[in-house]
């Protein structure tokens, strides 16, 4: 077993053990903190697929995060009052159904956004993904039916068969399981033929075209998959806070997701997990001392970019190698 695999297993074990112990010690706050880590790690794992493996610096992934959040919020509010959904769909508070709808809507949104954005590269790609996300953000703000600027509260957390989602540990375990499933999927994709083409597109698109593979289709597929994972995280995030807010879609959120990926290690399987743990713990520890905790986050990020390009995983396990 190489160092990276060992480190990944440690991260997975710590993230599972900490809230279980906290729950046993009757410290629900720490369970919620771990849940937040798992959800942000899931959102960043989605972005990592596009940014890390495909080199696509999307500055608009908050849009998908927010779409997922609003799907959870809208389902919850309709289910609460037993009203049918738009298009006469029956309302439900079952999470798997909500996730499926969130995933489908994110894929539907990501397809045109990706198809248009991927015609550009570099800084233009960053700007155009940001522009799309801002459009969706302002749409959410100006949509009074679902709270507009005030956001949409979720009085009762959506439910999952056989579990009590109001129980902090149960809800954590749901989020943890989804995160692990997403990481397993990412791992399989990374080592597959598609993953090889995607990573080649990041390194040298001219080379990829010269062996008869069109970079555009590969990247668009990765962008859509990436949006779906981030959207699932959004649905869970809204359920965690019992609130879907337009701020989930703001450019701050997009930036935060990029920071998570870079902190943890771009293009590393567990990079998003390491990044989310570091970010949330810093937010908690520094945020307790000063309101200006993001200044220190900025300094740490500067240090990572200047001296530790591989992020946390890179520091522990060294440079990524492709046998």
């Amino acid at each position: 077993m190489n160092r990276e695999t060992a480190f990944n297993l440690v991260l997975a074990a710590v993230l599972l053990a900490a809230p279980v112990i906290a729950f046993a010690a009757n410290e629900p706050f720490y369970v919620a903190l771990a849940t937040r880590i798992a959800i942000l790690a899931l959102a960043a794992a989605g972005l990592n697929l596009a940014l890390g493996f495909g080199g696509l610096v999307s500055f608009g992934h908050a849009a998908f995060f927010g779409i997922g959040g609003y799907v959870a919020g809208i389902f919850a509010s309709h289910a609460m009052y037993s009203e049918p959904l738009p298009f006469g769909l029956p309302a439900t508070d079952q999470m798997p159904v909500i996730w499926l709808v969130a995933a489908l809507l994110c894929a539907l949104a990501a397809l045109p956004i990706g198809a248009i954005s991927l015609r550009t590269t570099g800084v233009y790609f960053i700007m155009i993904t940001l522009a799309f996300a801002q459009m969706i953000y302002y749409f959410a703000i100006s949509w009074p039916a679902y709270g507009g600027e005030d956001g949409l509260s979720i009085p009762v957390r959506n439910s999952f068969v056989g579990l009590n989602t109001a129980n902090a540990l149960h809800f954590f375990l749901i989020c943890y399981a989804v995160l692990m499933a997403a990481l397993a999927l990412t791992w399989r994709i990374r080592d597959s033929r598609f993953g090889m083409a995607l990573q080649a597109a990041r390194q040298n698109e001219v080379r990829l075209a010269a062996v008869g593979i069109r970079p555009f289709r590969i990247r668009l597929t990765a962008f859509v998959l990436s949006a779906v994972l981030t959207g699932l995280a959004g649905a869970l995030f809204a359920d965690l806070n019992r609130f879907a807010s337009p701020s989930m879609m703001s450019w701050h959120m997009s930036g935060e997701l990029i920071v998570l990926v870079i902190l943890g290690g771009t293009g590393r399987l567990f990079g998003p997990v390491a990044g989310a743990i570091l970010y949330v713990l810093l937010e908690y520890a520094l945020g307790g001392m000063t309101e200006r905790w993001q200044l220190f986050l900025g300094l740490i990020l500067l240090g990572v970019v200047l001296f530790a390009r591989g992020g946390v995983v890179g520091l522990v396990a060294g440079k990524a190698r492709y046998d």
Binding site: I189, D191, S192, F194, G195, M196, G212, I213, T221
Partner: peptide, 20 residues
């Protein structure tokens, strides 16, 4: 080189199975 073999086989949309 494997990337070229994959290009020839037009099999880049397989998401599972370890290439190595």
């Amino acid at each position: 080189v494997m990337l070229a073999v994959q290009g020839r086989q037009r099999s880049s949309f397989r998401f599972f199975g370890n290439v190595m």
